[in-house]
């Protein structure tokens, strides 16, 4: 990829995620074909892109769920694919990962879902401390009344918010959202966008937000990355990316408006 096409707008000294020349393929299918970017501290990047271009694969590599074929992935100063289990777990405690389909533990109720990562990672917590932490994150996502429900009894949007709450409970430094607003009505969608911004403010996180939704991208991202065919086509402020005359960017733009 021609590096000159990348337009870095925000320049900060400290980058929390730094990716260079990332390649990833599954059997015959080449998914990521050379990704380079930095996520700076306190910054939100919204990644836009067609379905199946490898957005989810990208953040799974960042969190160490998948191994890169080639390239370097530094998260909080550590090269993710070179860490052993213990170091990786320590790193993961500092990263929040909100799944595309929520991935709530369906054998546990909401309270247990939220308390689980906490009690498993921090030993000797009193019941009160756990309750307080659960209440805090539930309050943040505005679902205090769902404490004892099972995930199967929640709506899609509620599941998404509980999923976000579950990642917040460990007070991460980096948040990775995989399509937080997909399948939500505009009102709920607005609520989730507000939540993401609130989290950024309140917990002082840096985030990557993967989305198809231009509104979401515009309102949450300090920078926008356009992903196409396994590469970052453009990266920069929203206006800069979409002022482009690039046919592919325009196509995505129009497509989203028709939707």
């Amino acid at each position: 990829m021609d590096k000159s096409r990348l337009q870095h707008i925000i320049n900060t000294d400290e980058s929390v995620i730094s990716i260079k020349g990332l390649y990833k393929s599954f059997e015959d299918l080449e998914v990521l074909k050379g990704i380079d970017f930095n996520l700076f501290k306190g910054e939100n990047i919204a990644v836009l892109g067609k379905s199946g271009t490898g957005k989810s694969v990208l953040i799974k590599i960042i969190v160490g769920l998948l191994k890169p074929d080639e390239g370097e992935v530094y998260v909080l100063g550590q090269q993710v694919d070179k860490l052993n289990r213990k170091e990786l777990d320590a790193l993961r405690l500092r990263i929040g990962f909100s799944f595309q389909h929520s991935a709530l533990y369906d054998s546990m109720n909401v309270y247990q879902n939220l308390a689980f990562p906490l009690t498993m990672n921090i030993k000797n917590l009193s019941k009160k401390e756990v309750n307080n932490a659960v209440d805090e994150v539930l309050d943040a996502v505005g679902l205090m009344d769902k404490l004892n429900q099972m995930p199967s009894d929640l709506s899609g949007g509620q599941k998404k918010r509980i999923g976000i709450a579950r990642t917040l409970i460990l007070k991460p430094e980096i948040m990775l959202y995989d399509e937080p607003t997909s399948g939500l009505d505009p009102i709920t969608s607005t609520e989730v966008i507000a939540l993401i911004n609130e989290v950024q403010q309140q917990y002082n996180t840096s985030s990557i937000i993967i989305t198809h939704d231009l509104t979401c991208a515009k309102n949450t991202g300090n920078r926008i990355a356009m992903m196409l065919d396994g590469q970052f086509l453009r990266i920069g402020k929203f206006e800069e990316v979409f002022d482009s005359n690039d046919e592919e960017v325009k196509g995505f733009f129009n497509y989203n408006f028709i939707q």
């Binding site: 993961r92 389909h101 533990y105 990562p117």
Partner: peptide, 17 residues
Amino acid sequence: SMKVTEQIDAMEVSAIN
């Protein structure tokens, strides 16, 4: 079902083995 609904991955990223 935990695997295909990514619950296992969710545990993994919560630093639970």
